[in-house]
Deep mutational scan, measured.
Amino acid sequence: MEVRTIKVFTTVDNINLHTQVVDMSMTYGQQFGPTYLDGADVTKIKPHNSHEGKTFYVLPNDDTLRVEAFEYYHTTDPSFLGRYMSALNHTKKWKYPQVNGLTSIKWADNNCYLATALLTLQQIELKFNPPALQDAYYRARAGEAANFCALILAYCNKTVGELGDVRETMSYLFQHANLDSCKRVLNVVCKTCGQQQTTLKGVEAVMYMGTLSYEQFKKGVQIPCTCGKQATKYLVQQESPFVMMSAPPAQYELKHGTFTCASEYTGNYQCGHYKHITSKETLYCIDGALLTKSSEYKGPITDVFYKENSYTTTIK
């Protein structure tokens, strides 16, 4: 009895394709271990004539594949690729409408935090270190965002349907971005203890939790000093293409032309909904596939993004 075979390709990165001759009487799992086709788990399936010449994702289970996976995804987590594939199996079914010149995501599976993050990423200057993220990001900007969303979920250790947080998501993504040249110098002034300067680099240099107003941050924000008295913390120097200011959701007025974009969060910790506000020729609110415009805006804002380049204080 002759062994019926077909020729397929296996890959971990969709760049390096490895030619395989597979036995049609055995499952993919018996031949390769966990195997995925377009995100779908085909591990328990036997090869079919229609699979001839198709590319299958496999887990990096030998040295060659491990090197290829690390170079593309910059992670050695053995569960990463499987999590990416199972997320992709959902995100490829989502709709990605162009809204006001940006790629958004039609609401499904509690994905409003991903839509808000995706919209924000198209408006701030950011370059990702893992080629996987950078490639998928370019495709997302062009309207094909399924891979990018699935990668975000995998890097953030999230599953489809789980509630997510924009600030946490951005923080994970910033860790995989090139923020080497970003720098922030802060000064804390206390009447009792004097003053202390701190220099922050990388992710810490672009994120701040405690106030939404970048102007206020430049002037000074009140913080408790270690001595128990009130101290003032203010920005001395900022070198970065953008800054992200966050605070627990509270009524906040966004003035046209003073910011790049913002995240609105309605609801409580267990259950809520994100919308995205962007400042173009007027203010726009993007909620999944829905767009509304207004000249002014007041609502429960939790993150505001500002364009920056270089700032030095005039406070002496």
Rank of each mutant, 00 (worst) to 15 (best):
V3G: 14
T5W: 10
K7T: 10
T10P: 06
V12G: 09
V12K: 09
N14P: 06
Q20C: 13
Q20F: 11
D23Q: 10
M26I: 11
T27F: 09
Y28Q: 05
Q31V: 10
Q31K: 13
P34R: 10
Y36G: 05
Y36I: 05
L37N: 12
D38M: 13
G39Q: 11
G39T: 12
D41L: 13
D41G: 07
D41K: 10
D41H: 09
V42F: 15
V42W: 12
K44R: 12
K44F: 11
I45L: 11
I45M: 13
S50Y: 12
Y57W: 11
Y57F: 12
L59D: 07
D62S: 12
D62G: 11
D63H: 13
L65S: 11
R66A: 15
V67C: 09
F70D: 09
F70V: 10
E71R: 14
E71G: 14
E71K: 11
H74S: 07
T76S: 10
D77F: 03
L81M: 10
L88F: 08
H90R: 08
H90Y: 15
T91P: 03
K92T: 12
W94K: 01
W94I: 05
K95E: 12
Y96T: 04
P97S: 07
Q98Y: 06
V99K: 06
N100D: 13
G101V: 03
G101H: 07
S104H: 03
S104F: 05
W107P: 05
N110S: 03
N110H: 02
N110Q: 03
N111S: 04
L114N: 04
L114H: 02
A115H: 02
A117I: 10
L118I: 09
L121H: 04
Q122D: 04
Q122V: 03
Q122C: 06
Q123T: 05
Q123A: 06
E125G: 09
K127T: 14
F128K: 03
N129F: 06
N129P: 03
P130V: 10
P130C: 11
P130G: 00
P131R: 08
P131S: 04
A132W: 02
L133W: 02
L133G: 02
L133Y: 02
Y138C: 15
Y138R: 14
R139N: 12
R139M: 12
A140F: 08
E144A: 14
A145F: 02
A145V: 05
A146H: 08
A146T: 06
C149R: 03
C149W: 02
C149A: 10
A150V: 02
A150W: 02
I152N: 02
A154Y: 04
Y155E: 02
Y155L: 04
C156T: 14
T159E: 13
T159M: 09
V160R: 02
G161S: 05
G161L: 04
L163Q: 06
G164L: 00
G164N: 04
V166D: 02
V166N: 01
E168R: 15
T169S: 06
S171V: 10
L173R: 02
Q175T: 09
A177H: 02
A177N: 01
N178F: 05
N178V: 07
N178Q: 15
L179P: 04
D180Y: 08
C182H: 03
K183D: 04
L186D: 06
L186E: 12
V188E: 09
V189K: 14
T192S: 14
C193I: 01
C193F: 01
Q195C: 12
Q197K: 11
T198D: 08
T199A: 08
T199K: 08
T199G: 04
K201W: 11
G202A: 05
G202F: 03
V203W: 15
V203H: 10
E204N: 15
E204W: 08
E204T: 07
A205S: 10
V206S: 01
M209E: 08
M209A: 15
G210M: 00
G210V: 01
L212W: 03
S213Y: 00
S213D: 12
E215T: 08
F217M: 11
K218M: 05
K218I: 06
K219W: 06
G220L: 01
I223F: 13
I223E: 14
I223V: 13
P224L: 14
P224H: 15
P224F: 09
C225D: 00
T226E: 14
C227N: 00
C227L: 01
A231D: 01
T232Q: 08
T232K: 12
Y234F: 13
L235M: 03
E239L: 11
P241S: 09
V243F: 03
V243Q: 00
M244D: 01
M245T: 01
A247I: 02
P248R: 13
P249D: 00
A250S: 08
Y252N: 03
L254V: 00
L254D: 00
K255S: 08
K255E: 15
H256G: 08
H256E: 07
G257C: 05
G257M: 06
T258L: 07
S263W: 01
E264I: 09
G267C: 05
Y269Q: 08
Q270P: 02
C271R: 08
G272R: 01
G272V: 02
H273G: 01
H273Y: 00
H273L: 02
K275W: 02
H276G: 00
H276F: 08
I277D: 00
I277E: 01
T278I: 07
S279K: 00
K280A: 12
K280P: 00
T282G: 08
L283H: 01
Y284T: 08
I286E: 00
G288W: 01
L290S: 14
L290D: 15
L291I: 14
L291V: 13
K293G: 07
K293D: 08
S294Y: 13
S294E: 11
S295N: 15
K298E: 09
G299Q: 02
G299P: 00
P300F: 15
I301R: 00
I301L: 05
T302K: 00
T302A: 08
T302Y: 00
T302V: 06
D303R: 01
D303V: 01
V304F: 00
V304I: 15
F305I: 12
Y306L: 01
K307H: 15
E308Y: 04
S310F: 15
Y311C: 09
T312F: 14
T312I: 09
I315H: 15
